[in-house]
């Protein structure tokens, strides 16, 4: 069964089931419900009523239109990425649960009320409605995520260098993010200026609460504004900031191959650690990135200067190691 037929085999009965619930719940309890129903609550109590038929029609549309869009998406623009599949399943299940639980909540509020204006008002069940919808969406998104995304295949001709026996060859690369350094410097400057202003009494001392936030920005900027990458017999080490910590280390025996790619923040979704587990990019600036494929199939990329030499050395070291092991 393909992804699409499986998705439609669930979506069609699910659509019918939710629609049936929307019709059946108010209908089954119609002799205990007022008509019109209280359907909207404002800060001062009930501020909207709708006839029972009107509410059912509205709720049906509220469910069926998005449902039709989702089915259309699956038919004509099937999501191909893990994020796309997760989003589709989460929307299908979450929206259905939201609609049904909302209907139940309205029916519950109106239950046994002689007329709409005497209906109760939804309280804790609003939280329940949201919890059911989001919980269901999260579960469906997780179950429907499918196989990990297959990133661009590794290029056929991997760069390499000749390693001489008896020599220790290493590569050290670094990249500096100007924007993060600048934000860090500004953060520090504001902390200093604000602190001085408070000391001389120009700024009320109760504005002190902003200081930890600014300090945090400054420290975070200093820690993530530079990235250093080391390649050697130990494998690949990526370290943040002045102390190289926090960092990431991939030993040689987990490295399949390495190459360079041009990537931009727009492609990977911004700056910093980006992507889903299994295919992440550490992006500090657009341009040349070192891309590493692990034997487990994971991909790690880091934007770093002189990445081509690093990739060459990593390939040579990995090949030498597997040669020795074999």
């Amino acid at each position: 069964m393909t992804d699409r037929t499986r998705a439609l085999a669930v979506a069609v009965p699910w659509g019918a089931l939710v629609a049936a619930a929307i019709l059946a719940v108010p209908a089954a309890l119609s002799d205990r419900l007022p008509d019109p129903l209280a359907t909207h609550w404002g800060s001062s109590g009930i501020d909207g009523t709708t006839s029972a038929t009107g509410m059912t029609v509205f709720t049906l549309l509220f469910w069926l239109l998005p449902w039709a869009v989702l089915v259309g998406v699956m038919l004509f623009a099937q999501p191909r990425t893990r994020a796309g599949r997760s989003g589709w399943w989460a929307s299908l299940v979450g929206w259905g649960l939201l609609t049904v639980s909302m209907t139940c909540s309205i029916v519950y509020a109106n239950l046994d009320a002689p007329e709409a204006r005497l209906a109760g008002s939804p309280g804790w069940d609003i939280a329940l409605v949201l919890a059911v919808a989001f919980g269901g969406a999260a579960l469906a998104g997780f179950l429907g995520r499918g196989a990990p995304d297959q990133p661009n295949p590794a290029p056929a001709d991997l760069p390499t260098v000749r390693l001489h026996p008896g020599r220790r060859t290493v590569w050290v690369g670094r990249v500096v993010s100007l924007s993060m350094i600048i934000s860090s410097v500004i953060g520090v400057a504001v902390v200093v200026v604000a602190g001085a202003t408070m000391l001389v009494g120009l700024l009320p001392a109760d504005a002190l609460w902003i200081m930890p936030g600014l300090l945090l920005i400054a420290v975070a900027g200093a820690f993530t504004g530079t990235v250093r990458v080391r390649i050697g017999e130990h494998g690949l080490a990526i370290g943040f900031g002045p102390f190289g910590w926090p960092g990431k280390h991939i030993p040689l025996d987990r490295i399949e191959s390495a190459w360079t790619e041009q990537r931009t923040p727009a492609q990977v979704g911004g700056w910093g650690w980006r992507g889903l587990p299994g295919n992440t990019t550490l992006m500090l600036r657009g341009g040349e990135c070192l891309v590493v494929a692990e034997t487990s199939g994971k991909r790690v990329a880091v934007s770093v200067d002189d990445a081509a030499r690093g990739a060459s050395l990593l390939n040579a070291l990995a090949a030498e190691r597997s040669h020795h092991v074999a």
Binding site: G166, R167, R168, V170, W171, V172, D306, R309, S312
Partner: peptide
């Protein structure tokens, strides 16, 4: 920066 040292040098 690619650096190489001869261990027996």
């Amino acid at each position: 920066m690619l650096l190489s040292l001869d261990l027996s040098d």
